[in-house]
Design a protein around this nucleic acid. Structure first.
Lengths: 225, 225
DNA sequence: TAGATTGTTAATCGATTAACAATC
DNA sequence: TAGATTGTTAATCGATTAACAATC
């Protein structure tokens, strides 16, 4: 077969199934690449990119190989090219509008969080039940009543939502979101959400993250009591 | 060997190395068990506990077997016993004091977040540089100037810290914390922290979590453009 | 050309699942 | 006793790593 100059700018032929760990690492590669580019770096080798994150060079190459050929033998990867490619793979080459449900402490903090915009996410609408908040516009985001959620989501065609309501309310909120067409949920409520197969949930439980630390800290120091 | 009634209440003899995925799942088991107990449930089988989380019964039993024998053949696991055992394993059977560095939106939200206390974490001190905040006490937590961090951490003997400063400052903050004796860091800044081997870092990058969703949502719907 | 580095195949390692005797 | 369910060993599956020809 002729080796065409097939840099595969559209990561067209993806295998049906990519291991989940690979996809997580893709995001990490992307962050490092963005940082490298900001510092004016033109190219990077798999060895360099890997060591920034504690991975081997082979792993970096293998991960990328799931999606196409992005590198140049003898040179490495061109940062800006690889950034574009990964963003396309992850779907963040375009902006995603996101709904935010629940404006407690965490919800309001996320509303003001600048890190989302930077990566192509925009909170387009927020929902709560507090009369103090409903009807207002916070950080440019209109706050609507939870009752309007189904209609509002459906009309706007939003596909992603963030749940920051108390644990007890989270399952109902999730059901409502899904009924309205949401396909991806970032859930901060400490509950396991049961969802249909076409819906994806990523859960972030802040206490659990700390708990993972206590496990290792306990083990590396003196023994637990 | 005689099979003694060795319920192994102190999970004494742990293998030197437990796979990381096992430890993450332990936290998830703990949450479900706590929920079950709140609902008055006395016992639970590995099949039931697993299906609540989408795991197989075998996996639940295998995971727990790393740490001892906690179940009763024919009956299952007694919720309160297993809760105690897992908390002991994870180290959360006692309260951990935590330092919080950076009182931007996210930091202030975490200061008010109720989910930490519930699992045995208490933010004991917060640091910032804003004159508006330093010296005040917010939610019962004294806010001190970043310059006082080394001394304050060292004196209090804190071993865990949460970083919620901007990305640029995170590496220095981490260094200062580690120099003062911190062994576990929950890092919300979107940077990879380089730390010595005895220090553990768990990173939470909110934009990355959303990015994982866009990947799957893109794939399950129409193709990316 | 010599040196660097990729993409990929084969070998290794580790984690999950199946099966079942032991136990309540 | 019959039924349920554990703990654990062996078999399977999947992911990581090593090695190297191809390429710039």
């Amino acid at each position: 077969m002729v080796k065409s100059p097939d840099r595969n700018p559209e990561p067209s032929q993806e295998p049906a199934t990519v291991p989940q760990p690979v996809v997580s690492r893709l995001s990490l590669y992307l962050r490092e690449l963005q940082r490298l580019r900001e510092r004016g770096r033109e190219t990077v080798s798999s060895t360099q990119l890997g060591s920034l994150l504690g991975f081997t060079d082979t792993q970096v190459r293998k991960d990328l190989a799931y999606f196409g050929q992005f590198g140049y033998p003898g040179i490495g990867y061109r940062c800006h090219e690889l950034i574009d490619a990964i963003r396309r793979i992850l779907g963040t080459h375009r902006t995603w509008k996101v709904a935010l449900v629940g404006l407690g402490n965490l919800g309001r903090a996320l509303l003001r969080y600048r890190g989302f915009d930077r990566q192509g996410f925009r909170i387009a609408v927020a929902f709560d039940i507090s009369p103090q908040l409903v009807g207002r516009t916070i950080e440019g985001v209109p706050v609507r009543h939870m009752d309007e959620l189904p209609e509002a989501i459906e009309q706007s065609g939003l596909r992603l939502a963030i749940i920051t309501v108390p644990a007890e309310q989270a399952p109902q909120v999730a059901d409502a979101l899904i009924a309205a067409g949401v396909e991806g949920i970032l859930n901060f409520a400490p509950v396991t959400l049961t969802v249909p197969p076409h819906v994806n949930v990523v859960g972030v439980d802040l206490a659990i993250e700390l708990e993972q630390l206590t496990y290792s800290v306990t083990r590396s120091g003196e023994e637990a009591t």
